[in-house]
Amino acid sequence: MSGVLTVARLELTVRVRAGRWRWLLAAWFVILVGFTTLLRLAVSHAHNLQGNVGTVMYGGLQLFLLALALLVMPALTAQSVNGDRERGTLGVLQVTRLSAFDIAGGKLLAAWGTACIFLLASAPLVAWSMVEKGVPAIRVVIVTLVVALLLGVICAISLGLSALLARGTTSSVLSYLSVFALTLGTLIVFGLATAATTQTRVVHFSTGDPSAPAGCCSSEETVARTDLTWWILAPNPFVVLADAAPVVVERPPICRSFRTRGSIRTFCTPQPQSGVDPLGDISRSVRSLRSPPGLQSNIARSGGGEDLVWPYGLGFDVLLGGFMFGVATRRLRTPRRTLPRGVRLA
């Protein structure tokens, strides 16, 4: 473990002193402040929010932050192994007592730590949205943890690619492509797969007219079998983020009382908060994808535990990150039998 820390400290020292890193962080903060301020101004005149400005601000901020982070992270790690090799510093590191795991782990830790510093820079804005009400602390804690984990996954993927490929430019391009695959790619494949699995079925109905012949009245309808394809969307970082966010309950559920055979029974349904909570909206729509056709109108089950999507998505993402980290470790192991084509160790 001390080897990992040694390498991480080296990487961070080198990185922190590089001026461009500070500029990137400054630009990052300015962009987030600008976005949050604009968002605040945009929602200030909306009437349906009823004091939940914070929910919108926080949700919007987190989605924007994730998008921005997905753009920045590959740049931080995508050349960390092959760049070192091109600069001639890798071999010198590998002949020391540091193991391949130390080197890969240190590089990942440094990159992830940097990512977390970027995340930390958004703290004032998160605090602002909390002041505006409608953001429970538990939501902030869980969303922050999930975003941190997702950024770690992106770092691990980039690290693995930089160890796998000889050229820094190739691994950078592939890192961005894998981010693209996880975000837009899952969306595109989900759309196409859903269209491809759409079924047509015949629905029979009775008209109530006794003179009509049996089975006279039927119509055809197409049903999207999203219950078969929802998992394609699951690894999408935005889906994971939104679905993992705990539900905000800020309005009391609508309750109706019925008098049945002398006793009074009360049925309550949580109020849907469409348009108020961006994270909740995404979460509800992806969870509803899991229900078989016919049950999709059952919006009321918004907190239904069995329809969770994020554990699958996050699980997949973390496994992918772990796999790519394993690839990096394997690739850093010496003595080497095979070398990537055109690579010299010294």
Binding site: V14, A18, R87, V95, T96, R97
Partner: peptide, 18 residues
Amino acid sequence: VRAMSGWVPDAFGVYDNL
């Protein structure tokens, strides 16, 4: 072997900012 030996490559790579 690593504990016992030192190696100096022909091209000396450097870290920036160290």
